[in-house]
Amino acid sequence: MRTIVITGGTDGIGRGLALRYLRGGERVVALGSDPAKGARLLQEAGRLGAGERAEFVRADLGSVARSRAVAAEIAGRHPAVDALVLGAYRYNPVRIRTGEGFEQTFALYVLSRHLLAEGLLGSLERAAGTPVILSLCGVGGIRAGAMRWDDLQHERVPYRATRVTMQGARANDLLGVSFAERHAEGRTRYVLYNPGFVATGMTQSLRQPMRALTRAAAAVFARSVDRAVPPVAALLDAPPAAPLSGFFQGRPVDLDRPGFDPGSAARLHAALSSMLGESGRG
């Protein structure tokens, strides 16, 4: 029996993966911030006869302290983890500053992924098969936005939710590059995956009329979660041999491009380490 840890595991693709693996006899640890959604997932697991293999961890991963604590808690309960799916994300129309002083989208979308990947690395390396981290992110095709190296949390410019989100997607590509470079001797594979436009619950955080427009577009153009989940699961079930790989809707992506520059990845890692070290002291 494998242990699959999924952030954003109560919504969209994360929930779809959780239910798929519970049906398949695996153990699932789903992380989410909404206890009601967590309860519904556990109820569904019970109906599937998988109640004993389902675990919901309530966690606001926009908190650095909570992200660290959750990684430690899961590692303590599960000495071996076979797969970590990094899918937690929330679209914030306005700037939100966390109690720790971070811009919330950056904290949730970037910092938490770094902390969970590093915090669960020991458990991943002890997996019986080939351990894998799969990050739902940009995979190099993000034309909008840019890495604002002198202002990664967009504190000195007007807040633009799309711009902040696009930088987060680019940063998550670089997190994969950094991880693969720093842990090249390890067994854990890192997969970058862009599922394309998928009909999920993301529209709940949008303001009108954007919420209605996005829902209408999703009804026409978006793939369903049921269609989006199988290619993701295929990569989790049989991880690529390369330490780092990228895919767009199941199709391989060439990583020999500027968006995956090792120098930029190292620069981001240094910046995050500095931020997190200052946070730890403060």
Rank of each mutant, 00 (worst) to 15 (best):
R170E: 03
F260T: 09
R211S: 06
L255T: 08
R215I: 05
A242P: 10
D173T: 14
V198F: 03
L192F: 08
R227L: 10
G176R: 08
H183P: 10
P240F: 03
R207P: 15
R227I: 01
F221R: 13
V229A: 10
F260E: 08
T214P: 02
T188F: 07
M210H: 14
V177M: 03
L235W: 08
V191W: 00
G176W: 12
P252L: 04
T203P: 13
S178Y: 05
P231L: 15
R207W: 07
R182M: 04
A199R: 12
G263I: 05
R163S: 13
V198D: 01
V225Y: 03
P239A: 01
G186D: 09
M166A: 05
G250W: 08
A241S: 10
R223C: 01
T165I: 05
V198N: 07
G259K: 08
T203Y: 02
A216N: 02
M202G: 01
Y190F: 15
V177D: 04
A161Q: 14
G186V: 09
P258V: 15
G168Q: 09
V177E: 04
L174F: 07
P258K: 13
A199V: 06
V177L: 02
A265W: 06
G263S: 06
P195T: 14
F197V: 14
T188S: 09
A199L: 08
G250R: 11
A222Q: 09
G168V: 10
L213D: 00
V225S: 02
V191P: 00
N194H: 15
A218E: 14
R207C: 01
F221N: 06
D237F: 00
L192I: 05
A238V: 03
V220R: 12
P262M: 04
A216Y: 05
G246A: 13
R251I: 04
R182A: 13
P240C: 07
N194Q: 12
D256H: 12
T165C: 02
A242S: 13
S245D: 11
Y190C: 10
P243F: 02
Y190W: 15
D173I: 14
A233G: 01
P195Q: 11
